[in-house]
Structures are given as structure tokens and as C-alpha cells.
Design a protein around this nucleic acid. Structure first.
Lengths: 217, 217
DNA sequence: GTCTATAGTGAGATAGAC
DNA sequence: GTCTATCTCACTATAGAC
């Protein structure tokens, strides 16, 4: 990480970005000092101010630019039409892939909202709402068409997003599971959740299982 | 919050606890200053050191004592026997109730693990593993008995816990939803997820629904 | 148990030479 | 664009009177 002379520019910018992501993910924004950050990049602490006006602006830039990337990528991935199950599958596949690919950014976007100053927070929350809505719309469409059985679309939205976003807390590229296995499994679980058929009372006993099956036909 | 004279003792201790929970939830451990904490309690900053040796110990006490409470409460709530669906239902009901009742502690236990020093972290992670295992065992039992259809018990465990723990990020006592409604809805979603029947390919069309129902009988 | 006062440290941010 | 040097401030933690 050390550096030789008075060089660089855009290379430094990218290095600061990556080091910042790493440090904030590990220790949190408040606990990360600019001295640490500079050391990791291999420059002096004062030099950082050629790249941002202050620490808060650095955080906001990280979060905002990531949210923009996320939106742009989602736009590409969403199906314009198709059954709700197909659209939901596509959404989950995208979400999982993105969360695995860019887990640090994603994690920070959830965990460091509290560290944003009010004005900056407002901007980010608006983008976030927009994203949640994409999922809500799919669930709502499925509920109306009868493909999905959901007691509450809002809660289902939050539940699914929490479940998917949790992936970036435990997924490790060198772990037991491949990206594909995770994607497949979560797609299955989310679809099962959405398609429901689970009245808590309905399924435990075999007798009830029969009733349910009959109702479905 | 202000106080009158040189009084108190255990009352102060409880006040510090509550103020700490609130501040850490809102701003995070690293961003909370002991001056803030003292001000919220209505004492001077130096007086805090009658209640802990340093800031880290305060955090660790909060987290550890909460984990102990959680384990004790879970012990009471778990069913010793019954079908996997019944046991899972009970687990979810407990989990939701607890997360709603003590959302600050729960949130901190997830979000401030990073702020624990290595030794303290080790202790907490062990307790956490133990808790996850309670859920894994239920899912595994259900998978073996054929009640549940799960591609991967470990991922299902993590998915369910993430989904449930997410509740403390958005639930508001004065909001649209009652505790009971949340509990019922999440129980339903978790059971649906566990009981599966969701090969991504299998369920969109009604034709496949029939096959599924037939197989279940 | 609480207060006031302060030691000692490390933080974010700025100034000016190269 | 980077460096060195430094300002200013807030923080954790301690000491000692009441």
C-alpha cells in the first residue's frame, strides 16, 4: 500500500474509495479515523482533503453513488412483464447477485444511514423508498392476480428485503456456498413465502394438510 | 431528566442503562459520547465511572445481559415436543414478541458486535450461535419428518432470523400494525417459507399446483 | 455517589512549501 | 497532488473535595 512520490490522482481517488469501504464496513463510519484511512491508502492525512471537503461528504458520496448504481442495475434487470412469480424470481436473482457482488457498499447503505446528516439522509431515504416500491409492486400484482397469498404486502416487502439483505452479513466468496446455490435457494424461499398457503393453523396436522390440498384444487 | 441533589444509586444505574440503549440505538456506540450519556441521565460525566470501568465495559454489559435474558426467555417459550410446525410457530411468536418488546437491545446486539473488543466479541458470538441452533434444530427436525421442504437448513436459518430481526428496524408501537398482526403475519410467512413447495418452476401455473397437492396427500 | 477540575490523547480540518 | 506542521476541539479517563 505504500507509495513512492508525489504522484497519482484518479488512482488515489479509487484507492481512497476502496479503503473507505473496507474500514467503514469493519469498524463503522464513526470509528474510522481519517488517519487510518490515509495510512491504508499510503498518503498523509491532510492529502485526503484534495478528494473531499469533509468526512461526512465522503460518506455521503459513497452511499449516494452506490444507490445510483443500484437503481441503474435494477432497471436493467427488471422484467417489463410476465407473471408475478417470474418477475419476483428475477428481482430476487438480481438482488442476491448484487448483494454478493458488492456486499460492502450494500452493508454500509443499511448500517450507516444513522451517520448521515439530516439533509443527506433525506436524499438517500427517498432513493431507498423507490427501490422498495419495485418489490411492493410485484407482490401487489401477484396478490391481485391470485398468484400470491399474502396477508400484508408491506410486511412481506420488508421481510423479503431483510432476508435478502442479510446475505451480505454472512456470505463469503470462499465459503461453502456458490453464488448460484445462494441465488437458487433464496429464490425458492422467497417464492414459497409469497405463494403462501400457510395459515398457521392449516398445516401442522396431516388432517389439515388434506383439507388444504383439497381447497387448492 | 434533570436531577436535584447528590442522591440515588440503583435508580441512576437503571437510568444510565436506558439512556445508553437509546443513544447507542440512535447514534451508534462509537458516536455516543459519555458527555451526552451523562447529560441525558442528568449527572456529570465523571460520575458515570461509578457504574462502569470504561466505555467498552458498559457496551459489553448491555449486550451480554441482554443475551442472557434472551436465552432465559427462549428457554421458557420453546416447546419440548410437538410437530416441527408447532415448534416453529412457537419460536417465531416468541422471537417477534421479544423483538418488538425490546427492540433497542436486540438492534444493538446485532449492530454493535463490531464495537466489541475481541475477547468480549468471542463470548457474545458463542451465545449467538447457541440461539441460532435452536432454530436450526427445529428446521432440521421438520426436514427429516417431511413437514418442511428446505433446500438448505443453514441458509433457511439465516434467512428466517434476518427476516424476523428486521422487524426491530421498522416496527413502531404507535404505527399501523399491532403486535398481534405482526406476529400472525410473520408466523404465516415463515411457515410458508419452511413448508416450501416452491420449486421456482413448479408453482406459477395452476396445473403444477394440482400436482403439488396430490403429492402431499 | 456526586461534584468540579483537569490530565492526556487523538480527532477533523487548515495553511503553506514543494 | 502531496507533504509537513499545526490549530482547535472533543473525547475518555482520573483525582480529589464534599
Amino acid at each position: 500500500m505504500a507509495r513512492i512520490a508525489g504522484s497519482s490522482g484518479p488512482r488515489t481517488e479509487e484507492a481512497i474509495r476502496r479503503a473507505g469501504l473496507s474500514l467503514i464496513t469493519t469498524h463503522g463510519y464513526a470509528a474510522m479515523s481519517l488517519r487510518q484511512l490515509a495510512a491504508m491508502v499510503g498518503i498523509q492525512q491532510g492529502s485526503l482533503y484534495n478528494y473531499f471537503r469533509n468526512k461526512q461528504e465522503f460518506l455521503f458520496d459513497l452511499i449516494r453513488s452506490h444507490m445510483q448504481d443500484l437503481h441503474a442495475a435494477l432497471e436493467q434487470a427488471l422484467l417489463p412483464e410476465g407473471s408475478a412469480a417470474e418477475r419476483l424470481t428475477r428481482f430476487v436473482e438480481f438482488h442476491v447477485a448484487y448483494h454478493i457482488e458488492r456486499s460492502q457498499e450494500v452493508f454500509i447503505c443499511y448500517s450507516e444511514l444513522r451517520s448521515l446528516e439530516p439533509e443527506n439522509l433525506t436524499a438517500v431515504v427517498a432513493m431507498r423508498r423507490d427501490y422498495e416500491r419495485r418489490l411492493s409492486d410485484i407482490l401487489e400484482a401477484g396478490r391481485e392476480s391470485g398468484e400470491f397469498r399474502l396477508a400484508d404486502v408491506r410486511m412481506a416487502t420488508l421481510a423479503i428485503l431483510a432476508m435478502l439483505s442479510g446475505i451480505c452479513n454472512w456470505y463469503r466468496p470462499d465459503g461453502r456456498l456458490s453464488k448460484e446455490a445462494v441465488s437458487r435457494t433464496f429464490t425458492g424461499m422467497v417464492l414459497a413465502l409469497a405463494q403462501g398457503g400457510a395459515d398457521p393453523a392449516a398445516l401442522p396436522q396431516p388432517a389439515n394438510l388434506n383439507r388444504l390440498a383439497a381447497r387448492r384444487q
